[in-house]
Design a protein around this nucleic acid. Structure first.
Lengths: 232, 232
DNA sequence: CGCTATGTTGATCCATATCAATAAGTGTGG
DNA sequence: CCACACTTATTGATATGGATCAACATAGCG
């Protein structure tokens, strides 16, 4: 693995408290691979052999049932995914596919479990990461059950704006079809929802969003730290 | 704490691998309290001071936003709740109220974190528990996003039947109003959904449900281990 | 034994899905 | 480098699942 990438991994919350020796052992056991777009990295139901880390590109987590499919999350660099399946040694509950050309680290699940037992800092980090993932999904459930699709979109845009550094204009990070699925709505309904938000000072030009009237959209969206704050 | 209750706690997955000494320290720092029905034990947004364990009775986890409320889960004996907030030392994302008279153990969050650092068996159990909680919420999200309300009800009934030992007849564990909210629907809609399921051989008499034609309801519900199996 | 909360049923409304047609990109191979 | 195919996005028309409103029934409970 290239030096720069290695240090990106090292800097992850999950690894930064780990002893050098243990980290190096883990990395020696790992693989780095570059995948083209739209490659299925993981199929739900498969047994968890590796913890995955996205170095570059992006990966979509999605699930299917009875011929239907829904987008569950998008993983962006640099972060891990399917940690829960790894530590429980259980089948994946979600599938994963690259959205674009992506570089991914694969760490054998067994080595993760071994490192957990040997390194208290790493153990603490795993717990912290898992708890954060849990809380993120709870927030997502609240978003889904307590808000209408228009409210979900409005709050999503406010969160994305925040993630883009708070600028009034920013780009949607992936296509609208996926966004619709992530927000639990159809592409047609998303398209109409964007139009409705024009009344609240949101301008849409393709993937470029401009929040022209911040107080107005926030008055409508009512963002809540117990749903929308990533840090809490 | 009474001997029988203490051993119930000891037998929890979370504590059973823990050294005696550490478990006793934890229990000495804890409180046991009995609460009447409909008491709010936790308010979302409050800081997490205690890990809670339900010994008897039952506790509802719910969330609110903008004047709306939704039921997130029901905790039944003997299990813990809000472990994630405890380990992250963060505000609760859900409120909790007793549904009936309930006996609850309160373990100071700080003692949990101390025990984590001293006892590898406990650390492993916490990780395992958190990962399981995470996976439960993911399953719930898949249920919500991939299924109609009728399908959610049908699968819920099949799961409850399983939990009741697989008998054809069983009781709903709490009132229909809460069940509706948990399933993400209105009480009126739930009432009609129950009527619709009569066509699939489900008989409803108050809180008593009879699955008269198991293959029929399963053909409709299409239960899936990656959504409905608690053990996976 | 009434009172209040819960559950049911009917009528209606609304948010969102579905179906259909078109437009606009986007990538590929000739 | 362009033409074609294919996917994505938009828009309109319509259908429908589920919500809301209202009335009534029922059942715990003080």
């Amino acid at each position: 693995m290239a030096e720069a990438q290695l240090s990106d991994v090292r800097d992850l919350d999950l690894f930064c408290a780990m002893a050098d020796e243990h980290f190096e052992t883990l990395m020696r056991a790992s693989y780095v691979q570059t995948f083209p777009p739209r490659i299925e990295l993981i199929q739900e139901g498969d047994l968890s052999d590796f913890l995955h880390i996205v170095l570059t590109g992006s990966v979509e987590l999605f699930s299917t049932w009875n011929g239907r499919e829904t987008s569950m999350a998008t993983v962006r660099p640099v972060s891990t995914f399917i940690l829960a399946a790894t530590v429980r040694n259980s089948p994946y509950l979600m599938s994963a596919r690259t959205l674009e050309k992506s570089r991914v680290v694969l760490i054998p699940s067994q080595d993760i479990r071994t490192a957990f037992d040997m390194d208290l800092g790493f153990a603490r980090a795993i717990v912290s990461e898992l708890a954060q993932c849990y809380r993120a999904v709870i927030k997502n459930t609240k978003d889904l059950k307590l808000r209408s699709s228009l409210e979900r979109l409005a709050n999503y845009l406010i969160r994305e704006q925040h993630r883009a550094g708070g600028r009034t204009a920013f780009q949607l990070p992936y296509d609208k079809r996926r966004l619709a699925s992530f927000l639990g709505m159809t592409p047609e309904n998303l398209s109409r929802a964007f139009k409705s938000l024009q009344d609240y000072g949101v301008e849409v030009d393709g993937a470029r969003i401009t929040i022209a009237d911040q107080p107005r959209i926030e008055r409508f969206a009512k963002p809540d730290r117990l749903i929308d704050d990533y840090s809490v």
